[in-house]
Each structure stands twice: as structure tokens, then as C-alpha cells.
């Protein structure tokens, strides 16, 4: 198999890799905020349960969570295994990344001085207005570097979808490597991930720069 054929075959899987990546971000970024708010809830049991769930999600391998989401329902309830593996894969990824984003958000929210809330309160901002207009924009700026880190990790983590037989780029690479008894597909995969991450890094850098108008 020529290198070109390899690259073409693996690029076909790249679409699925991108699907995991973008869908995970679309769902986990807002979900993380909900989890963060529950985690900081004044209702003790809510905060406690959320905290427990976060520790489970952060304290167990993503690969296990993928297996649990994909095959768990079958083993537990005899439910059928999804034919379209993108669904369980995105669910598992989104939940896992939401836990990480939640902790990043929480750190960001807690780093905003109380005075900002008080100033807004005295000026008659409602709670929602205070959060959306005053707190959140400042939080986003502060957490951008940590979020970038997670996003870069996510690019590489997409390869874990292989564990539930989702045929993304790395899975195809492994298949080719296996049938051709060749290491080249792994090299190609490495280059793909690297280029992907260079683009991600550039995009995140642009966003950070756009938030640079204040200190």
C-alpha cells in the first residue's frame, strides 16, 4: 500500500475524529457550567453528590467510561448496543470532559473577588445579569489557558474511541498497520494529531488574544 493510499484511507476516519472532537466540545462546555454551578450549590446534598460524581469521572480512566456507556446498558438491562457508535462515544466524552471543565469553571468563578458581585448588587443587577454580564466574561478570560490544555488533550483522547470499535482515524491506522505489518500508519496518525493540535492551538490563541483588551 502506498503512503498516499494510507493517508487517503486514514483521512476518511479523520471526519469521525473531528465529529467526536466538535460534538464533545459543543456538549461538554455548557454541561460543565451546569455541573460547576451544581457543585457550588448552597444545597449541601446537591453539592456533595455532584462532587462525588466529579471525582468518579476524573478518577477513573476515560476508556472505562467509554466501555460503561457503550456496553453497560446491554450488560445491565439487556438493552441493545448502539449501531452508531458516535452516540455512546460522544456521551462518554461529553460527560467526562464536562467534569474537567466544571472544575476549571469553578476555579475561575471562585477567583472573582466578592466585591464584583457586591458592586453589581448595589447597582441593581439581577443575579442572572450579574453572572452573565459581570462574572462570566471575566471567568472566561481567566480560564482560557486551562481550557486550551483540555482541548488539546481532547484531540489526542479521540483515539480512545477505538476501544468501543468506533472507526475513527486511529482505528483505521491500526487496521492498516496490522494488515500491512507496517509502522508507517502510526507515523501518519502522529502527524495528523500534531497538525490538528497546531490548528487548535492557533484558534485558541486567537480567542485569548481577543480577550486581551483588558487586564
Amino acid at each position: 500500500m502506498s503512503l498516499m493510499t494510507m493517508i487517503v484511507k486514514m483521512s476518511e476516519g479523520l471526519g469521525k475524529t473531528c465529529a467526536i472532537f466538535f460534538l464533545t466540545l459543543i456538549f461538554s462546555l455548557p454541561l460543565g457550567m451546569i455541573v460547576a454551578l451544581l457543585r457550588m450549590s448552597k444545597i449541601k446534598p446537591v453539592a456533595f453528590v455532584t462532587r462525588f460524581i466529579i471525582t468518579v469521572l476524573r478518577g477513573t480512566p476515560l476508556m472505562l467510561q467509554l466501555l460503561a456507556v457503550t456496553y453497560g446498558p446491554y450488560y445491565l438491562f439487556g438493552a441493545s448496543v448502539a449501531r452508531n457508535k458516535l452516540i455512546p462515544v460522544v456521551i462518554a466524552f461529553a460527560i467526562n470532559y464536562a467534569a474537567y471543565f466544571a472544575e476549571i469553571y469553578r476555579g475561575g468563578i471562585e477567583s472573582i473577588p466578592v466585591g464584583q458581585y457586591e458592586a453589581a448588587e448595589v447597582l441593581g443587577y439581577t443575579r442572572t445579569q450579574t453572572f452573565m454580564r459581570i462574572i462570566l466574561p471575566q471567568v472566561i478570560k481567566r480560564i482560557m489557558p486551562s481550557v486550551t490544555n483540555e482541548v488539546v488533550t481532547l484531540v489526542k483522547d479521540t483515539s480512545m474511541a477505538f476501544t468501543v470499535s468506533y472507526q475513527e482515524m486511529f482505528t483505521i491506522g491500526k487496521q492498516i498497520a496490522n494488515s500491512q505489518t507496517s509502522f508507517t500508519p502510526f507515523l501518519v496518525a502522529g502527524v495528523f494529531y500534531y497538525v490538528f493540535n497546531v490548528i487548535v492551538d492557533y484558534a485558541m490563541g486567537r480567542i485569548e488574544k481577543r480577550l486581551d483588551y483588558y487586564k
Binding site: P113, G115, A119, E121, V122, G124, I134, K141
Partner: peptide, 20 residues
């Protein structure tokens, strides 16, 4: 209380301007 809030203003020691 929200209506009462419109009657007064408060200036803080540390300004608490919105930086963004």
C-alpha cells in the same frame, strides 16, 4: 429591597469597577 436599592449608591474602597 430592589426598589430601595435605587435610592442609594455605594462607592467602595477598592473601586470595584468592572474590568472588562
Amino acid at each position: 429591597l430592589n426598589r430601595f436599592r435605587t435610592r442609594f449608591g455605594l462607592v467602595f474602597q477598592n473601586f470595584q469597577l468592572f474590568p472588562h
